[in-house]
Write a protein that binds this DNA or RNA. Structure first.
Lengths: 144, 144
DNA sequence: CTAAAGGCTCAAGTCGACTTGAGGCCAATA
DNA sequence: TATTGGCCTCAAGTCGACTTGAGCCTTTAG
C-alpha cells in the first residue's frame, strides 16, 4: 500500500504517517521508486496508535508498549502499571461525570457552594495533593 | 491571601495563578500595593480547575463551566454533554485497561496478532472512524 | 510527450498551557 | 539605612504532535 491508501483507510493524514514513521511508530517496507510502501498490518498498528492516543498515551509511550522494533517481549510490568493508571483515571472520571450531572441539576448558583458537589469533588481528587495533567475527552471532529 | 499563600495551599505555582487570572479563570480582589490579594474561595476554584484539567477539559471549557464571571447560571446542557462525553471516555478507558492487562499476560509476541486483544480493541473504538484526541492518564510528578 | 497529481524532504509554524528570564519596584528585616 | 527577597510585567521559550509551505522529483493519464 502506498501512503495515500493508508491515509484513506486509517483516517490519518499522510503527514502524520510520515511523522510516525520518522518517530519509529510504524515502518514502511522500503520505497517503490521514491515512495513509501506500507504493509497491511500498519492499519492495525495505526488503530492501536489511535486508541492509545485517545486514552492519553504519548507517542513515546505507545511506541514503548507496541515495541515496533520487533522487541521479543515488551515490558509487561509497564503494561500493568499503565492499566493501573488507567483504572485510577477511570475512578476520577466517574466522579467528575457525576459531579457534572449533579451540577446540571442542582439549583445552587455556584456549585462551589453545594455540599453534594463538594463531596463528589473530594472523591474525584487523587489521594495526594495531586499536581498533574489529565485526561482529554475526545472532542468533536466537527469543523476540523 | 497573597499569591504565595495561594500557591502553597493549592500547589499551583504563582506563575500559573497569574496566568489563570489573566485568562479569567480566577480573580483577585485587587492589589495591596502592587500585589494581588486573593479571596479564600479561590482555593476551591483551583481545586475545580485542577480536577477539570485532570479529566481533560481545556482551560477554556473549564472557564465556561465555572462561569467565573458570576454567570447567573451556566449552560446545564453543556454540562450534561460533557458528562456524556466523559462516560464515553470511561468506556473506552475500561476496554483499554483490559487490553493492557491482557497484553501483559498473553504469550503472543505481537499482541496485534492476538484475537482476544483485537476484540478488546474493537470494543474500545468509538463507533465512527474516530479521529480525535484523547485522555491523558495523570502522570508521575517524579522528576518534574 | 507533456502536464497535472501526488510523493518526497526539510524547515518552520501552530496550539495549549505554562515556565523562564530580564528588568524593575516595594517592604520588612538586620 | 541598606539589602534581600517576594512580587510585578512583558516577552520569549518549551513541549508534544502535528501541519504547512517551499522547492523538487516521479508517476500516470491523455
Amino acid at each position: 500500500m502506498d501512503i495515500a491508501d493508508v491515509a484513506n483507510r486509517s483516517g490519518f493524514p499522510a503527514s502524520a504517517l510520515r511523522f510516525y514513521e520518522e518517530k519509529g511508530l510504524i515502518r514502511s517496507l522500503g520505497r517503490k521508486g521514491e515512495r513509501r510502501q506500507f504493509p497491511a498490518e500498519v492499519l492495525n498498528q495505526l488503530a492501536l496508535i489511535s486508541l492509545g492516543q485517545s486514552v492519553g498515551f504519548s507517542l513515546d509511550e505507545i511506541r514503548r508498549m507496541l515495541g515496533t522494533d520487533g522487541e521479543p517481549e515488551i515490558d509487561r510490568q509497564a503494561l500493568l502499571a499503565k492499566a493501573d493508571e488507567l483504572d485510577a483515571t477511570i475512578r476520577q472520571l466517574r466522579a467528575v461525570s457525576k459531579g457534572l450531572r449533579h451540577a446540571a441539576a442542582c439549583p445552587e448558583p455556584r456549585h462551589t457552594d453545594c455540599p453534594t458537589f463538594q463531596k463528589l469533588l473530594a472523591e474525584a481528587m487523587p489521594k495526594g495533593g495531586q499536581k498533574k495533567k489529565g485526561v482529554q475527552p475526545f472532542g468533536k471532529t466537527a469543523g476540523d
